[in-house]
Simulated assay, not measured.
Amino acid sequence: MGVARQFDRSQSMPNLDRRSLLAGAAATTAFAATATVAQTDKLIAQQDFTGKSVLITGCSSGFGRLAAEHLARKGAKVFATMRNLPRPEADELLDLIVSDNLDIHIIEIDVNDDEQVLRGVAEAERLAGGAIDVLVNNAGISVAGPIEIQDMEATQAIFDTNVYGPHRMARAVLPKMRAAKRGQIFNVTSQLGRVMLPGFGQYSPTKFALEAMSEQLAYELVPHGIDVTIIQPGGYPTKIWENSQKLTLGLLERADDHHTGGYTDMIAQLRARDGGETDPMDVPRAIAEIMAMPPGTRPLRRPVHPGPKPQVAINEVSAKTQVAWLGQSPYGPWIKSVHGV
């Protein structure tokens, strides 16, 4: 088993802040423009993650499963976590690990279970030989339907997974990350964490909450050399759609006409929805690209989708507002660092 690299950013890059790193990155980009190697080829060549440890939640399917394999093939030591082991998805991944000699370790973590989170992270840190380099909070659920028919069972379940789960995971990995003065956290939200589509229940509220928590965390972790990036996917045909349909049908079975009677057309539309024909690999590729960037230069948010990205305008005005409001306050250095000002 490989050992996670031990790297203290404060020692290796003294007196460099995000602004100076951005200036250096800009100079590098300008030089690359005159080179014969395309910038995209250069970015791909930089994606050698040998010695880097990555813990990913929700690896039984979708973005998590794809990211685990993608990053392992680029040399990372991956801790692919999922709940309810043993399960067929874990067996399939294990077969791939053996056949392709991938450095992937399957660990049971239900992000809703405090003890499993602590135990699973401790095991990953033991196998990594120290702090986890990268945490990818990917696990999430969706329960569709108008807000009125979202009972407390459905509401508590989605907030526990989509908001409290990433919080549990961050709290578990951060002590050792801070001690190492390095680290990276990816929180997978959604474009529906910035804009809302009627009929998606508490999904947008949970993703809005995760967006806010992630941004606050990004500011607070600047002094500790830890980067936070929010991945904002659009619609993709991952298993979350299938699982959402099951959860939604369960909710509808529990609901009564007193609540559902006013939303007949909306409920019919939700039964027919799908994730489109986009390529879910867009998300693992975006994560790998950002991982390869120098510490301190990584973006706070990355929209990911080949189609419309309605959240972009909101991301831009939000960043400008934060800098204008707090840029000259005692928090100014943190705010400006995160937004590259």
Results as ranks from 00 to 15, higher is better:
D133N: 14
S329C: 09
S318E: 08
G307P: 00
S60G: 14
R19K: 14
V136A: 03
T278K: 11
D279H: 04
N101Q: 14
S190N: 03
E115F: 08
D103T: 05
A68F: 07
D8I: 01
G262Y: 14
D274L: 01
T229Q: 09
W325E: 13
H167Y: 14
F7H: 11
I314L: 13
V317D: 10
V304F: 06
L102F: 06
A292H: 11
T297F: 02
V323R: 06
T81P: 10
E148W: 04
A80Y: 01
N112R: 15
L217W: 08
A68P: 07
Q150I: 08
G225F: 04
M196H: 13
V117F: 03
Q216F: 03
L300Q: 11
I106E: 04
G145A: 12
Q311L: 12
G235T: 11
Q202C: 14
T248C: 01
M266Y: 05
I132L: 13
Q191P: 00
Y331N: 13
R18F: 11
F49T: 03
A128C: 04
Q311M: 05
Y219C: 00
S190R: 00
Q39F: 15
F208D: 05
L102E: 03
E153F: 05
P146F: 07
I335R: 09
I335F: 08
M196S: 13
A172M: 03
F159G: 00
R271P: 00
K181I: 02
A170G: 05
P233M: 02
S12A: 15
H259M: 13
P223M: 06
P308W: 06
S61H: 13
S142M: 10
A144I: 00
Q191C: 02
V98F: 01
E211Q: 06
V188K: 00
I335S: 03
E277D: 15
R168T: 01
G261E: 02
L135M: 09
A180K: 12
L252N: 06
T260I: 08
I267G: 12
A154D: 05
Q328T: 14
L192C: 04
G145F: 05
A23L: 12
A23Q: 15
R168C: 03
D48E: 09
I240T: 01
